[in-house]
Measured scan of single mutants.
Amino acid sequence: NSLAEAKVLANRELDKYGVSDYYKNLINNAKTVEGVKALIDEILA
């Protein structure tokens, strides 16, 4: 998966839960796919 794909999928996942734009910005600023995954795990914990 590319970083861009990971960000799109992460933001879709956040949308399902009604997560605020603050967290979407964190996702969009992530530098690695692993970073995106770690943020998602933390946000949805």
Results as ranks from 00 to 15, higher is better:
residue 1 N to E: 10
residue 1 N to V: 14
residue 2 S to G: 11
residue 3 L to R: 00
residue 3 L to D: 01
residue 3 L to A: 01
residue 4 A to W: 15
residue 4 A to P: 04
residue 4 A to G: 06
residue 4 A to Y: 11
residue 5 E to Q: 12
residue 5 E to K: 10
residue 5 E to L: 14
residue 5 E to M: 14
residue 6 A to M: 12
residue 7 K to P: 00
residue 7 K to V: 04
residue 7 K to D: 01
residue 7 K to E: 01
residue 8 V to A: 14
residue 8 V to P: 00
residue 9 L to K: 11
residue 9 L to Q: 10
residue 9 L to M: 13
residue 9 L to C: 08
residue 9 L to T: 07
residue 10 A to K: 01
residue 10 A to D: 00
residue 11 N to V: 14
residue 11 N to T: 11
residue 12 R to P: 01
residue 12 R to E: 10
residue 12 R to I: 14
residue 12 R to H: 06
residue 14 L to K: 01
residue 15 D to Q: 10
residue 15 D to N: 06
residue 15 D to V: 09
residue 15 D to C: 06
residue 15 D to T: 12
residue 15 D to H: 08
residue 17 Y to C: 03
residue 17 Y to P: 01
residue 18 G to D: 07
residue 18 G to T: 06
residue 18 G to P: 05
residue 19 V to M: 15
residue 20 S to H: 07
residue 20 S to E: 06
residue 21 D to F: 11
residue 21 D to V: 11
residue 21 D to W: 15
residue 21 D to H: 10
residue 22 Y to D: 05
residue 22 Y to C: 11
residue 23 Y to I: 03
residue 24 K to A: 05
residue 24 K to W: 06
residue 25 N to V: 08
residue 25 N to P: 03
residue 25 N to R: 12
residue 26 L to R: 09
residue 26 L to M: 09
residue 26 L to C: 05
residue 27 I to E: 00
residue 27 I to V: 08
residue 28 N to R: 07
residue 28 N to C: 05
residue 28 N to A: 11
residue 28 N to Y: 12
residue 30 A to W: 01
residue 30 A to G: 03
residue 30 A to T: 05
residue 30 A to R: 03
residue 31 K to E: 12
residue 31 K to D: 11
residue 31 K to F: 10
residue 31 K to P: 07
residue 32 T to E: 02
residue 32 T to G: 02
residue 32 T to L: 02
residue 33 V to R: 04
residue 33 V to T: 04
residue 33 V to I: 15
residue 33 V to K: 04
residue 34 E to D: 08
residue 34 E to H: 06
residue 34 E to P: 04
residue 34 E to Y: 07
residue 35 G to Q: 14
residue 36 V to G: 00
residue 36 V to P: 00
residue 36 V to T: 02
residue 36 V to K: 00
residue 36 V to E: 00
residue 36 V to Y: 01
residue 36 V to L: 12
residue 37 K to N: 08
residue 37 K to G: 04
residue 37 K to I: 10
residue 37 K to S: 04
residue 37 K to V: 06
residue 38 A to W: 14
residue 39 L to A: 04
residue 39 L to W: 03
residue 40 I to G: 01
residue 40 I to Q: 06
residue 40 I to H: 04
residue 41 D to I: 15
residue 41 D to Q: 14
residue 41 D to P: 03
residue 41 D to N: 13
residue 42 E to K: 14
residue 42 E to L: 13
residue 43 I to V: 07
residue 43 I to P: 00
residue 44 L to H: 07
residue 45 A to D: 06
residue 45 A to V: 08
residue 45 A to W: 14
residue 45 A to S: 10
residue 45 A to R: 14
